[in-house]
Structures are given as structure tokens and as C-alpha cells.
Design a protein around this nucleic acid. Structure first.
Lengths: 169, 169
DNA sequence: CTGACTGCAAACCCTTTGCAGACCG
DNA sequence: CGGTCTGCAAAGGGTTTGCAGTCAG
């Protein structure tokens, strides 16, 4: 819809450049996985990508999709959406409020703001569907984590008490 | 911090009223689980609640926490945060953008808006931590789902192809 | 008392990991 | 060719479910 062939081509060549710079191999699987996600305006899960790709790459396995996606994430070519792994969280605050999310520890704090109650939502959005509510998500590093000596800009998995599992190689 | 004893008491009496109206039993476990989440300004996961509650209720089991939380959710007393169950999603759009989330099917669509780039974030939030980015999340029902005859206001698990698993009893 | 509820254990789903063979560069 | 990468299968962690005993109303 808002994604032209040029956009996709630009993303693909960016991928080639970044991959070459990082010295990772441009395998058939990685190319197709990136092409698939770069061509999508939805935000597919690993499984959705896998199912779409199976048609082109019958031998593809789901774990390769996961590995490739995290690799692309580490290369800064894609992002993850919403609360990453972690677990489901519950909220007893039913009033209209917004969230401050710490990208390091995953902590979420509420805040309210009269200035953010009637946000100017573009008309284009109203064509996507009926709007029930709007809320602002502020991402950052909470004060507790700021004091922490560890310096890491965008850890994939905020809380991992049992030894490092992955980092951008 | 922003949660007074009155707030908690009000939430608790609201719970009593709603539970009585719905005809569900006010068990010791449910009361304590609700008290715990209603007293929290964080957004605890089931496991965090479980660990906190084990001190008071040594025989409590984690599955009871889950069942109670979903019950509270179905009663409209609490909400779930972020992408509910579902799986991890990936996004190849790295530009600053916002999201329209369909609460029925879970589909997420991007949109951009120059009017939403510099939101007036209250100073109180800056005390919570360092702000990296802000983005708006619009929740609603997408056009595809609007056409769908099924009428359900807030399904717990949008996509469940294999038979219904739970609904508000 | 009786049906709703709990605790237990096992199932379940999504995601990750160890290993041996396959392929890019 | 060598080291990276893939596919397989099995493990892992969080969540859900079936069942029999327990408890609120």
C-alpha cells in the first residue's frame, strides 16, 4: 500500500551493504527471509514468514527463520515489535494512561497527561479501521538502569540472568 | 507512588461488587491476587505476582494465578499489556512511525504523522528515566474485522483457529 | 451440601540450542 | 576448501488444561 518497489529494492541493497560490511554470508535463506519481511507492511511473526517462505524454500526450517531474524535485528535492519519475549503482563489501572517502557529492564510505568488525551490522528488512519483508543508509549532507560554500569544500547532480551546468549557479533 | 490507600480500597470494593454481580466466588486466593495487582504500580507478570503471593499463600499455585488473572480480565477489572499471547513480531520499517493495532485480529499497521513527532511529554516522565523515543499506539477494529459478522468487544486471544478455548463465562 | 474452585501434573505452544552435514566466499 | 550456516530434533520457558479433592455460599 505504502510500500513501493523502490522501497523494497532500497531495503534489499541496504541489506547487501550491511551484510557485506559485517562479513556475514548472504545465503539464499537470509535473502529470501529479508525480502519477505522487507516487502511486508504487516508485522509478521516468524511463523507467518515461515509459512509464506515454505512455498519458495521447501526445505526451510523455522529455527533458521528465527536465527535469521535475530541476526537482522542485531544488524539493525529490522526491529521487534511490542513486548519481546518476556511474559504476559497485567495492569489494574483502567484509567486512560500512557506508558514509559524501559528498554533495558522491561519495566513499565504509567503516566497520565491531559495534553496527550486528544491526539491529532491523521485521517488516513481512520481508513484503516474504527479507532477505540490512543495511547503514547515512551521508550527509554529508567533511572534505575541508568545507574547500572552496564552499557548496552538495545539489548535483545533485557533480563537474562543466566549468562549472555547473544549479542551483535 | 501515585497509588494511595484510598485507590486500593476503591479498587477492592469495586472487585467485591463486580464479583458479586457476576456470581463468582470470592476465594482467599482471588482476593489476595487482586489485592496484589491492584496495589502495584508496576505491571507484574503472573510469575512476579505468584512469587510475591507465595509468602502470604504458601499453597498457591501458578496456574491459579493465571486463571484468576484471566477471570479478572474477563470481568473487566484488569487488562493485559502489550501484545497479548501471540508470538513475537518483526518490523522492517525503521523510520519513525506509529501503529494502528486491531484488537480483534491483532493486525498492526504503520502510519506516520508529522503532528505526532514531537509530543508534549510531561516533565514527570523525564524523572522516570531518559527518553529515547515516543510513539503512538492507536487501538481499534480494522476494516477487515468490521465487516466480519462476529461481534465481540475485546477477545482475549484474537486469533484462535483451533476451537474456542475461553470466553467470559 | 453442592458446584465452583484449587493444586497438581502433564500437555501445549513458541522459541532456542546442540550437533552433523551443506554451502558461501 | 574452511568456517559459517542450515536442518533436524530435542530441550526450554511460559502458559494452559484435565482431574480429583477442597471450599465458599
Amino acid at each position: 500500500m505504502s510500500l513501493s518497489k523502490q522501497d523494497i529494492a532500497r531495503r534489499l541493497s541496504h541489506f547487501h551493504a550491511v551484510a557485506k560490511a559485517a562479513g556475514i554470508k548472504l545465503t539464499h535463506q537470509r535473502l529470501e527471509i529479508f525480502r519477505e519481511i522487507a516487502s511486508s507492511i504487516e508485522h509478521p511473526s516468524a511463523e507467518i514468514l515461515f509459512n509464506a517462505l515454505k512455498l519458495r524454500l521447501p526445505t526451510l526450517s523455522l529455527d533458521t527463520v528465527y536465527r535469521s531474524l535475530w541476526l537482522l535485528n542485531d544488524l539493525g535492519l529490522i526491529m521487534t515489535l511490542g513486548a519481546r519475549r518476556e511474559s504476559l503482563r497485567f495492569d489494574a489501572n483502567l484509567e486512560h494512561h500512557h506508558h514509559f517502557v524501559c528498554t533495558r529492564c522491561g519495566r513499565i510505568r504509567d503516566f497520565t497527561s491531559p495534553q496527550l488525551t486528544d491526539l491529532p490522528i491523521p485521517d488516513a488512519v481512520k481508513e484503516l479501521g474504527h479507532i477505540d483508543s490512543t495511547h503514547v508509549e515512551v521508550r527509554g532507560i529508567c533511572t534505575t538502569c541508568s545507574k547500572d554500569p552496564v552499557e548496552d544500547s538495545a539489548p535483545r532480551n533485557p533480563k537474562q540472568p543466566k549468562g549472555e546468549k547473544r549479542s551483535r557479533s
